[in-house]
C-alpha cells in the first residue's frame, strides 16, 4: 500500500499550480524514494520533471512501486477543497484504480476524504542526459517571473544572453524593443535576493515567452530560480522545493532559420 502524509498541504497545491498549465494529465510514480513525475507537454517543446523525496513527508510508506495516472483538472478540483493549513494524507492500495485524498483541519474537528479515479496513461519514461552547462544563473524567482511577464508584452520570444558581466533578457516586436540587464549582485543581506552567474562560455539562446511564463507558476515554491544554459540544448529552469526536492522545466530553444 501507499500512504503519504503532509502536514502543510499548501506545498502540493503549489506543485499542482506549477504543472497544470503545461500538462493535462501525468503519471505520479511512487517508490520508496519518493514521488516522481516526468512528462512532456503535448507539443513536445517542454518537459516537467518533479521530484519529491520521501523523507520530506511527515509520514511515507510505499510497499510496492506504484504509477498513478492522474487527470490534473480532477486533482485540482479536489485540492481546492483543502485548506492551506490542512493536514493531507494520500492513500492508495497496490494496483488500485483509485486514490484517496484525506484533509484534516489542524484542530482535527473537520475531516474530509475524496476518492479520485486513476486513469491509464501510457507514458514513456525518458532519460535526461547529464549535461555540463556553459552558464548557470541563479536569481530571485519573483524577479524572473516579473521579467518574463514584462517582456511577453513585446514579443513571442525572449533572447537570453549570458556573459561574465551579467545576463540580458531581450524581446522585440511591433511595439518596439525591450532589454533587461541583470548584473551579479555584489552584496546582499539575504541569499535569496542574490543574482549569481557561473559561466564557462557565453551563451545566447531564444525561447518562447509562453512557456517561460508557464514555468513561473512555480514561483511560490521557491524564492530562487536557477537557469542552466548551453548552446543547442534545452534550457533548464529549476525551482527547489524546501526539504522535498525540486521541479525542473526543460525548454527547447527556438532555432534560427
Amino acid at each position: 500500500m501507499f500512504e503519504a502524509r503532509l502536514v502543510q498541504c499548501s506545498m502540493l497545491k503549489k506543485v499542482l499550480e506549477a504543472i497544470k498549465e503545461l500538462l493535462n494529465e501525468a503519471t505520479f510514480d511512487c517508490s520508496d524514494a519518493g514521488i516522481q513525475l516526468q512528462a512532456m507537454d503535448n507539443s513536445h517543446v517542454s518537459l516537467v520533471s518533479l521530484n519529491l523525496r520521501s523523507d520530506g513527508f511527515d509520514k511515507y510508506r510505499c510497499d510496492r512501486n506504484l504509477s498513478m495516472g492522474i487527470n490534473l483538472a480532477s486533482m485540482t478540483k479536489i485540492m481546492k477543497c483543502a485548506g492551506n493549513d490542512d493536514v493531507l494524507t494520500i492513500k492508495a492500495q497496490d494496483n488500485a484504480d483509485n486514490v484517496m485524498f484525506m484533509f484534516e483541519s489542524q484542530n482535527q474537528e473537520k475531516v474530509s476524504d475524496y476518492d479520485m479515479k486513476l486513469i491509464n496513461l501510457d507514458q514513456e519514461h525518458l532519460g535526461i542526459p547529464e549535461t555540463d552547462y556553459s552558464c548557470i544563473i541563479k536569481m530571485p524567482s519573483g524577479e524572473f517571473a516579473r521579467i518574463c511577464r514584462d517582456l511577453s508584452q513585446f514579443g513571442e520570444s525572449v533572447v537570453i544572453s549570458c556573459t561574465k558581466e551579467g545576463v540580458k533578457f531581450s524581446a522585440a516586436g511591433d511595439v518596439g524593443a525591450a532589454n533587461i540587464k541583470l548584473a551579479q549582485t555584489a552584496n546582499v543581506d539575504k541569499e535569496e535576493e542574490a543574482v549569481t552567474i557561473e559561466m564557462q562560455e557565453p551563451v545566447t539562446l531564444t525561447f518562447a515567452c509562453r512557456y517561460l511564463n508557464s514555468f513561473t507558476k512555480a514561483t511560490a515554491l521557491s524564492p530562487q530560480v536557477q537557469l542552466s544554459m548551453s548552446a543547442d540544448v534545452p534550457l533548464v529552469v529549476e525551482y527547489k522545493i524546501g526539504d522535498f526536492g525540486h521541479i525542473r522545466y526543460y525548454l527547447a530553444p527556438k532555432i534560427e532559420e
Binding site: M40, E124, H125, Y250, K254, E257
Partner: peptide, 14 residues
Amino acid sequence: SCTQGRLDGFFKVL
C-alpha cells in the same frame, strides 16, 4: 525569424 525546436531527440526513451 526562428522556429520552435522540439525536445524529441534530446531525451532517450528508457
